[in-house]
Structures are given as C-alpha cells and as structure tokens.
Design a protein around this nucleic acid. Structure first.
Length: 254
DNA sequence: ATGGCTTGAGTGTCAAGA
C-alpha cells in the first residue's frame, strides 16, 4: 500500500494536479492539508470519478484536511478530542486495517508569539491523544504537515534558522515526544541523500536553489515501520506551473 | 532591508503561510 501526504495550499487551485498525481503514482491513501474550503464545496464527485473515496474536515480560507483513498474508509474521526479548537487541522480513519491520522500542525509564526504558544499547546494535545490512539490502534500512521524540521539535516541553512520557528528546541522536543510514543520517521528508516526537503519558499527562487526544509512527515508505529520498504519526497509536482509550495512525501508499505 | 510569492476574501489591500 502506497501512502502519502501533501500540503496543497488550496485544493481549489490544485485539484487538477492532485488528480493527475494520483493517476500517475497509483497512490492508495493521500492525506491533504490546507484545502482552504468548506465541506459543502469539497470536490467529492471529481475525486470519486478518479476512483477515490474522500473524507474532509474543512473551513473557509484557512486550514482544512482530507483523506483520499482507493480502499474503503472506516471509523472516520474529525478534530482532536478534548481540545476545543475552531481550526480544522485533524482527520483520521481506518483504511486496510491501518489507522491513518492526517494532521496540519500549526505554523507558529514566530518563537514567543501567541501563535507559537498555541502551537506548543496544540502539539501537547496531539501527543496525549496519539498515545491513546496507539493503544486502540497498534497499526497507526501519522501523516501531515508538521511545521517542524526535526534536525539540522532537514534545513538548508541551519545557522540562519537556529532557534527560529520550525526549528526551535520546544518544537523539536515535541517531535521527539512523538517518536518516544513508539513512532518512527519513515524517511529516516532508509539511507537518504543530503538536502532532501518537502517545502520551499515561493520567494527568492527557493525551489530552484533548493533552499527548503523537511517539515512534512510520515510517522509509523512499530508494526508499520517493519513493513515499510521505501520513503521519499516526490519533487515532480513542485516543478509544475502554479505549484503548491510543498511537495508530496510518500511511503510504501508491504 | 523582516521584503522577496501565493492564496482567499473581495474590489482595497491585507492576513497568513513558513
């Protein structure tokens, strides 16, 4: 089973790219972030015509997450429980006996800002809930835009970004706490080339200069990590006209 | 130099992203 995550930065703009990419890659499960639309305008019909079931947790303008699958979807869940939040950042479901959790984690804007405090509180709530979910669902995959670069290897210029947003120690500590639940970073299960990123700034020719960050991740519980045969970033969609600033991250499970 | 693009809302120009 091929699973993937992609922050599309508006599904309205990117829907043709998503449908083309699904057809080209034969992906079984795709988690989307930043759909930026309400549920009532979500393109269920176009996706069904492309062969995909879909569930969506959206809102106007900001955030919004979806899971697209070729297999049937069971036990959908929307939002973090026990964390009152109008921002639509979490959706989960069971697909082929794997619990898929799709998350758009807060950006945080700047270390020390109100949005940064919200990010850290949100991450703590996520981690508490993930611990419970792993008890219920030992076969669990967490996919999404984490807005965290876990390590200096994941940053094009670690000196410039030291202690900045996406790289600060409290954010990296939250990422480590996810790993301590028993999850593995699928990308790091394998030897990887240097300077592989999943996001590049639209400005300053960031993509052409490969000035990016690895902030989109697939974390796997132990049974799934043992079944994972490959993980990488597919840069092809980032080269298209009107791309998202993020590229898909893909993992293959036997 | 805290900008540089891109999107949505909405028709001015700003918030937000990372």
């Amino acid at each position: 089973m091929k699973i993937a995550t992609w922050n599309v930065n508006s599904l309205k703009v990117r829907l043709p790219q998503v449908i083309d990419w699904l057809a080209a890659t034969q992906t079984d499960v795709l988690c989307l972030q930043e759909t930026k639309m309400e549920d009532k305008v979500f393109p269920y019909g176009e996706l069904a015509a492309a062969g995909y079931h879909a569930i969506h947790n959206g809102q106007k303008t900001y955030n919004g997450v979806a899971i697209l699958t070729r297999p049937d979807i069971d036990m959908p869940q929307f939002d973090l429980p026990a964390f009152d939040d109008p921002q639509k950042r979490v959706i989960a479901a069971t697909v082929n006996d794997v619990r898929i959790v799709c998350a758009y984690m807060p950006n945080g804007q700047a270390v020390g800002s109100d949005k940064y405090e919200y990010k850290l509180k949100w991450l703590t709530a996520l981690i508490r809930w993930l611990g419970e979910e792993l008890q219920r669902y030992p076969r669990l995959a967490l996919l999404g835009d984490f807005n965290i670069a876990p390590d200096d290897r994941d940053v094009h210029d670690p000196a410039a970004w030291k202690d900045q947003i996406l790289c600060s120690e409290p954010e990296r500590d939250a990422f480590r706490r996810m790993l301590e639940l028993g999850l593995s970073d699928a990308f790091r299960l394998f030897d990887q080339p240097e300077k592989i990123f999943s996001w590049w700034d639209y400005r300053m020719m960031g993509f052409r200069r490969n000035q990016g960050m690895r902030i989109d991740h697939i974390l796997l519980s132990a049974p799934l990590a043992a079944a994972c045969t490959a993980c990488g970033v597919d840069k092809a969609p980032r080269k298209l006209e009107r791309p998202s600033d993020h590229a898909p991250v893909v993992a293959e499970l036997t």
